[in-house]
Design a protein around this nucleic acid. Structure first.
Lengths: 143, 143
DNA sequence: TCAAATCGCTTGCAAATCGCAAGTTATTCA
DNA sequence: TGAATAACTTGCGATTTGCAAGCGATTTGA
Protein backbone atom coordinates (compact mmCIF):
# COMPACT_ATOMS: atom_id res chain seq x y z
CA UNK A 1 0.00 0.00 0.00
CA UNK A 2 1.58 3.23 -1.14
CA UNK A 3 1.60 5.98 1.44
CA UNK A 4 -1.12 8.59 0.90
CA UNK A 5 -0.55 12.26 1.53
CA UNK A 6 -3.34 14.71 2.23
CA UNK A 7 -1.64 17.68 0.63
CA UNK A 8 1.74 19.24 -0.11
CA UNK A 9 2.37 20.81 3.30
CA UNK A 10 5.56 19.51 4.92
CA UNK A 11 4.05 19.69 8.41
CA UNK A 12 0.96 17.74 7.43
CA UNK A 13 2.95 15.24 5.37
CA UNK A 14 5.10 14.34 8.35
CA UNK A 15 1.91 13.73 10.31
CA UNK A 16 0.49 11.56 7.53
CA UNK A 17 3.29 9.17 8.41
CA UNK A 18 4.09 9.81 12.05
CA UNK A 19 0.71 11.03 13.24
CA UNK A 20 -0.54 8.06 15.18
CA UNK A 21 -0.21 6.51 18.60
CA UNK A 22 2.52 4.01 17.73
CA UNK A 23 5.01 4.99 15.04
CA UNK A 24 7.10 7.32 17.17
CA UNK A 25 6.69 5.16 20.27
CA UNK A 26 8.35 2.31 18.39
CA UNK A 27 11.17 4.58 17.26
CA UNK A 28 11.58 5.79 20.85
CA UNK A 29 11.76 2.24 22.16
CA UNK A 30 14.50 1.46 19.67
CA UNK A 31 16.51 4.61 20.27
CA UNK A 32 16.15 5.00 24.01
CA UNK A 33 15.31 1.59 25.35
CA UNK A 34 17.47 -0.54 23.09
CA UNK A 35 14.61 -2.64 21.78
CA UNK A 36 15.44 -4.52 18.60
CA UNK A 37 13.50 -7.79 18.35
CA UNK A 38 9.78 -8.42 17.92
CA UNK A 39 9.69 -9.85 21.42
CA UNK A 40 11.43 -6.81 22.93
CA UNK A 41 8.57 -4.64 21.73
CA UNK A 42 5.81 -6.93 22.95
CA UNK A 43 7.32 -7.00 26.44
CA UNK A 44 7.34 -3.26 27.01
CA UNK A 45 5.25 -1.22 29.43
CA UNK A 46 3.35 0.25 26.58
CA UNK A 47 2.17 -3.18 25.44
CA UNK A 48 1.57 -2.83 21.74
CA UNK A 49 -0.60 -5.62 20.29
CA UNK A 50 1.29 -8.01 18.04
CA UNK A 51 -0.86 -7.42 14.98
CA UNK A 52 -0.36 -3.68 15.19
CA UNK A 53 3.34 -4.09 15.90
CA UNK A 54 3.63 -6.28 12.84
CA UNK A 55 1.84 -3.75 10.64
CA UNK A 56 3.82 -0.79 11.91
CA UNK A 57 7.20 -2.49 11.62
CA UNK A 58 6.36 -3.34 8.03
CA UNK A 59 5.39 0.26 7.34
CA UNK A 60 8.50 1.64 9.03
CA UNK A 61 10.61 -0.66 6.92
CA UNK A 62 8.84 0.30 3.69
CA UNK A 63 9.48 3.92 4.51
CA UNK A 64 13.15 3.28 5.14
CA UNK A 65 12.97 4.37 8.77
CA UNK A 66 14.13 0.97 9.99
CA UNK A 67 15.77 -2.11 8.45
CA UNK A 68 15.08 -5.75 9.21
CA UNK A 69 18.12 -7.98 9.62
CA UNK A 70 19.32 -11.08 11.40
CA UNK A 71 22.30 -11.97 13.49
CA UNK A 72 24.81 -14.12 11.54
CA UNK A 73 24.09 -17.37 13.36
CA UNK A 74 20.41 -17.04 14.21
CA UNK A 75 17.64 -17.52 11.68
CA UNK A 76 14.87 -17.28 14.22
CA UNK A 77 15.20 -13.80 15.66
CA UNK A 78 14.77 -10.74 13.48
CA UNK A 79 16.56 -7.53 14.32
CA UNK A 80 14.96 -4.18 13.65
CA UNK A 81 17.39 -1.30 13.49
CA UNK A 82 17.05 2.43 12.87
CA UNK A 83 18.44 3.88 9.66
CA UNK A 84 19.71 7.44 9.29
CA UNK A 85 16.21 8.44 8.24
CA UNK A 86 14.97 6.97 11.52
CA UNK A 87 17.71 8.45 13.64
CA UNK A 88 16.83 11.83 12.15
CA UNK A 89 13.56 11.64 14.09
CA UNK A 90 15.48 12.22 17.32
CA UNK A 91 14.90 16.00 17.40
CA UNK A 92 11.15 15.42 17.12
CA UNK A 93 11.22 13.01 20.05
CA UNK A 94 13.31 15.43 22.07
CA UNK A 95 10.85 18.26 21.49
CA UNK A 96 7.88 16.05 22.34
CA UNK A 97 9.42 15.07 25.67
CA UNK A 98 10.45 18.65 26.40
CA UNK A 99 6.88 19.79 25.93
CA UNK A 100 5.56 16.94 28.13
CA UNK A 101 8.02 17.78 30.86
CA UNK A 102 6.97 21.41 30.90
CA UNK A 103 3.24 21.27 30.18
CA UNK A 104 1.86 17.84 31.01
CA UNK A 105 2.93 17.37 34.62
CA UNK A 106 -0.10 19.19 35.99
CA UNK A 107 -2.53 16.74 34.38
CA UNK A 108 -0.22 13.71 34.57
CA UNK A 109 1.86 14.03 37.74
CA UNK A 110 3.50 10.59 37.56
CA UNK A 111 5.55 11.37 34.45
CA UNK A 112 9.05 10.15 35.17
CA UNK A 113 11.56 12.69 36.35
CA UNK A 114 14.86 10.85 36.51
CA UNK A 115 18.37 11.52 35.30
CA UNK A 116 17.41 11.38 31.65
CA UNK A 117 14.72 14.03 32.02
CA UNK A 118 17.07 16.24 34.03
CA UNK A 119 19.60 16.16 31.23
CA UNK A 120 16.91 16.74 28.64
CA UNK A 121 15.68 19.79 30.53
CA UNK A 122 19.14 21.17 31.14
CA UNK A 123 20.69 20.51 27.73
CA UNK A 124 18.47 19.23 24.95
CA UNK A 125 21.15 18.84 22.34
CA UNK A 126 23.48 17.03 24.73
CA UNK A 127 20.65 14.60 25.40
CA UNK A 128 20.03 14.06 21.69
CA UNK A 129 23.74 13.74 20.99
CA UNK A 130 24.18 11.18 23.72
CA UNK A 131 21.29 9.03 22.51
CA UNK A 132 22.57 9.11 18.94
CA UNK A 133 26.10 8.28 20.02
CA UNK A 134 24.94 5.34 22.11
CA UNK A 135 22.79 4.01 19.29
CA UNK A 136 25.56 4.29 16.70
CA UNK A 137 27.92 2.40 19.02
CA UNK A 138 25.37 -0.36 19.28
CA UNK A 139 24.99 -0.48 15.50
CA UNK A 140 28.74 -0.94 15.16
CA UNK A 141 28.62 -3.92 17.46
CA UNK A 142 25.61 -5.58 15.84
CA UNK A 143 26.51 -5.18 12.18
CA UNK B 1 -13.63 12.54 29.33
CA UNK B 2 -10.40 12.71 31.25
CA UNK B 3 -7.29 12.17 29.17
CA UNK B 4 -5.85 8.68 29.51
CA UNK B 5 -2.12 8.03 29.56
CA UNK B 6 -0.57 4.69 28.66
CA UNK B 7 2.37 5.00 31.03
CA UNK B 8 4.71 7.49 32.69
CA UNK B 9 7.07 8.04 29.77
CA UNK B 10 7.23 11.70 28.69
CA UNK B 11 7.64 10.76 25.03
CA UNK B 12 4.69 8.43 25.01
CA UNK B 13 2.54 10.81 27.05
CA UNK B 14 3.03 13.56 24.49
CA UNK B 15 1.88 11.12 21.83
CA UNK B 16 -1.16 10.15 23.89
CA UNK B 17 -2.33 13.69 23.28
CA UNK B 18 -0.71 14.76 20.03
CA UNK B 19 -0.40 11.37 18.35
CA UNK B 20 -3.12 11.53 15.75
CA UNK B 21 -3.69 12.90 12.30
CA UNK B 22 -5.34 16.15 13.34
CA UNK B 23 -4.24 17.72 16.62
CA UNK B 24 -0.97 19.18 15.35
CA UNK B 25 -2.44 20.00 11.96
CA UNK B 26 -4.98 22.25 13.68
CA UNK B 27 -2.23 23.91 15.72
CA UNK B 28 -0.22 24.41 12.53
CA UNK B 29 -3.18 26.01 10.77
CA UNK B 30 -3.58 28.44 13.65
CA UNK B 31 0.10 29.31 13.97
CA UNK B 32 1.14 29.41 10.34
CA UNK B 33 -2.00 30.01 8.34
CA UNK B 34 -3.79 32.40 10.65
CA UNK B 35 -6.90 30.27 11.01
CA UNK B 36 -9.05 31.20 13.97
CA UNK B 37 -12.72 30.46 13.31
CA UNK B 38 -14.55 27.17 12.82
CA UNK B 39 -15.19 28.14 9.22
CA UNK B 40 -11.52 28.92 8.59
CA UNK B 41 -10.64 25.35 9.46
CA UNK B 42 -13.35 23.76 7.35
CA UNK B 43 -12.22 25.73 4.29
CA UNK B 44 -8.62 24.54 4.30
CA UNK B 45 -6.88 22.25 1.82
CA UNK B 46 -6.69 19.56 4.39
CA UNK B 47 -10.46 19.46 4.73
CA UNK B 48 -11.13 18.20 8.23
CA UNK B 49 -14.69 16.94 8.75
CA UNK B 50 -16.80 19.17 10.95
CA UNK B 51 -17.59 16.55 13.57
CA UNK B 52 -13.92 15.76 14.04
CA UNK B 53 -13.00 19.42 14.06
CA UNK B 54 -15.59 20.01 16.74
CA UNK B 55 -14.27 17.15 18.88
CA UNK B 56 -10.64 18.15 18.50
CA UNK B 57 -11.24 21.82 19.25
CA UNK B 58 -13.05 20.80 22.41
CA UNK B 59 -10.16 18.56 23.42
CA UNK B 60 -7.55 21.20 22.65
CA UNK B 61 -9.48 23.63 24.79
CA UNK B 62 -9.83 21.18 27.70
CA UNK B 63 -6.08 20.64 27.56
CA UNK B 64 -5.41 24.38 27.65
CA UNK B 65 -3.66 24.37 24.28
CA UNK B 66 -6.21 26.81 22.83
CA UNK B 67 -8.87 29.14 24.20
CA UNK B 68 -12.30 29.87 22.78
CA UNK B 69 -13.33 33.51 22.71
CA UNK B 70 -15.45 35.96 20.78
CA UNK B 71 -14.90 39.37 19.29
CA UNK B 72 -16.50 42.11 21.44
CA UNK B 73 -19.41 42.83 19.08
CA UNK B 74 -20.05 39.44 17.50
CA UNK B 75 -21.86 36.65 19.25
CA UNK B 76 -21.98 34.41 16.22
CA UNK B 77 -18.37 33.75 15.38
CA UNK B 78 -16.11 31.95 17.85
CA UNK B 79 -12.41 32.63 17.90
CA UNK B 80 -9.96 29.88 18.70
CA UNK B 81 -6.54 31.13 19.82
CA UNK B 82 -3.34 29.43 20.89
CA UNK B 83 -2.26 29.73 24.51
CA UNK B 84 1.37 29.64 25.67
CA UNK B 85 1.00 25.89 26.07
CA UNK B 86 -0.08 25.74 22.44
CA UNK B 87 2.61 28.10 21.19
CA UNK B 88 5.15 25.87 22.95
CA UNK B 89 4.36 23.22 20.35
CA UNK B 90 6.18 25.29 17.74
CA UNK B 91 9.52 23.43 18.08
CA UNK B 92 7.77 20.12 17.48
CA UNK B 93 6.18 21.46 14.30
CA UNK B 94 9.50 22.87 13.16
CA UNK B 95 11.24 19.52 13.63
CA UNK B 96 8.45 17.67 11.84
CA UNK B 97 8.73 19.93 8.81
CA UNK B 98 12.52 19.77 8.86
CA UNK B 99 12.35 15.99 8.73
CA UNK B 100 9.79 16.08 5.91
CA UNK B 101 11.90 18.49 3.93
CA UNK B 102 14.94 16.26 4.20
CA UNK B 103 13.52 12.74 4.06
CA UNK B 104 10.08 12.79 2.46
CA UNK B 105 10.75 14.48 -0.87
CA UNK B 106 11.78 11.26 -2.56
CA UNK B 107 8.42 9.59 -1.89
CA UNK B 108 6.37 12.82 -2.04
CA UNK B 109 7.98 15.11 -4.60
CA UNK B 110 5.28 17.78 -4.59
CA UNK B 111 5.97 18.94 -1.05
CA UNK B 112 6.07 22.73 -1.18
CA UNK B 113 9.46 24.36 -1.39
CA UNK B 114 8.80 28.07 -1.13
CA UNK B 115 10.26 30.92 0.89
CA UNK B 116 9.06 29.51 4.19
CA UNK B 117 10.75 26.17 3.66
CA UNK B 118 13.95 27.88 2.55
CA UNK B 119 14.08 29.84 5.78
CA UNK B 120 13.22 26.75 7.79
CA UNK B 121 16.07 24.85 6.17
CA UNK B 122 18.55 27.66 6.52
CA UNK B 123 17.70 28.81 10.03
CA UNK B 124 15.22 26.78 12.04
CA UNK B 125 15.15 29.00 15.10
CA UNK B 126 14.70 32.14 12.99
CA UNK B 127 11.71 30.46 11.38
CA UNK B 128 10.23 29.53 14.76
CA UNK B 129 10.95 32.97 16.18
CA UNK B 130 9.29 34.67 13.25
CA UNK B 131 6.15 32.54 13.49
CA UNK B 132 5.85 33.16 17.20
CA UNK B 133 6.41 36.88 16.80
CA UNK B 134 3.76 37.15 14.10
CA UNK B 135 1.25 35.17 16.15
CA UNK B 136 1.84 37.26 19.28
CA UNK B 137 1.31 40.45 17.28
CA UNK B 138 -2.00 39.09 16.07
CA UNK B 139 -3.01 38.18 19.60
CA UNK B 140 -2.34 41.75 20.68
CA UNK B 141 -4.68 43.04 17.99
CA UNK B 142 -7.48 40.57 18.67
CA UNK B 143 -7.59 40.70 22.45
C1' DT C 1 17.13 -37.06 17.93
C1' DC C 2 13.09 -35.64 19.07
C1' DA C 3 9.95 -33.16 22.19
C1' DA C 4 9.27 -28.78 24.24
C1' DA C 5 9.94 -24.03 24.17
C1' DT C 6 10.54 -19.75 21.78
C1' DC C 7 10.06 -16.31 18.17
C1' DG C 8 7.66 -13.97 14.80
C1' DC C 9 4.11 -13.51 13.06
C1' DT C 10 -1.35 -14.11 11.12
C1' DT C 11 -6.32 -14.52 11.69
C1' DG C 12 -10.97 -13.72 13.61
C1' DC C 13 -13.80 -10.90 15.73
C1' DA C 14 -15.60 -7.14 18.67
C1' DA C 15 -15.17 -2.35 19.90
C1' DA C 16 -13.83 2.14 19.03
C1' DT C 17 -12.89 5.79 15.88
C1' DC C 18 -13.22 8.24 11.49
C1' DG C 19 -15.46 10.68 8.13
C1' DC C 20 -19.16 11.92 4.85
C1' DA C 21 -23.76 13.96 4.34
C1' DA C 22 -27.52 15.99 6.12
C1' DG C 23 -29.90 18.50 9.58
C1' DT C 24 -30.35 21.99 13.62
C1' DT C 25 -29.94 26.19 16.25
C1' DA C 26 -28.48 30.80 17.00
C1' DT C 27 -27.01 35.10 15.14
C1' DT C 28 -26.54 38.65 11.80
C1' DC C 29 -27.49 41.09 7.61
C1' DA C 30 -30.47 43.22 4.03
C1' DT D 1 -38.77 39.65 8.69
C1' DG D 2 -36.67 36.47 5.66
C1' DA D 3 -32.36 34.81 3.86
C1' DA D 4 -27.78 33.82 4.70
C1' DT D 5 -24.14 32.44 7.66
C1' DA D 6 -21.54 30.26 11.62
C1' DA D 7 -21.12 26.59 14.53
C1' DC D 8 -22.22 22.65 15.56
C1' DT D 9 -24.79 17.75 16.08
C1' DT D 10 -26.55 13.43 14.44
C1' DG D 11 -26.86 9.14 11.75
C1' DC D 12 -24.63 5.75 9.67
C1' DG D 13 -21.32 3.14 6.99
C1' DA D 14 -16.35 2.32 6.53
C1' DT D 15 -12.01 1.95 8.46
C1' DT D 16 -8.85 1.21 12.22
C1' DT D 17 -7.67 -0.65 16.70
C1' DG D 18 -6.86 -4.12 19.83
C1' DC D 19 -7.57 -8.52 22.30
C1' DA D 20 -7.16 -13.56 22.10
C1' DA D 21 -6.01 -17.46 19.96
C1' DG D 22 -3.41 -20.10 16.78
C1' DC D 23 0.36 -21.49 13.64
C1' DG D 24 4.77 -22.53 11.38
C1' DA D 25 9.70 -22.22 11.60
C1' DT D 26 13.79 -22.41 14.44
C1' DT D 27 16.31 -23.53 18.41
C1' DT D 28 17.22 -25.71 22.81
C1' DG D 29 17.65 -29.37 26.06
C1' DA D 30 17.01 -34.18 27.71
Amino acid sequence: MPQEFRCDCPFTSALDILGDKWMLVIVKQMLLEGKETFKDFTESDEAIATNILSTKLKLLEELGIIVKTQRPNNKKTNLYLLTDKGLALTPILVELATWSDKYLRDIHPTIVNGEGVQLLRHDKSAFAGMMLHKYREKLDKVM
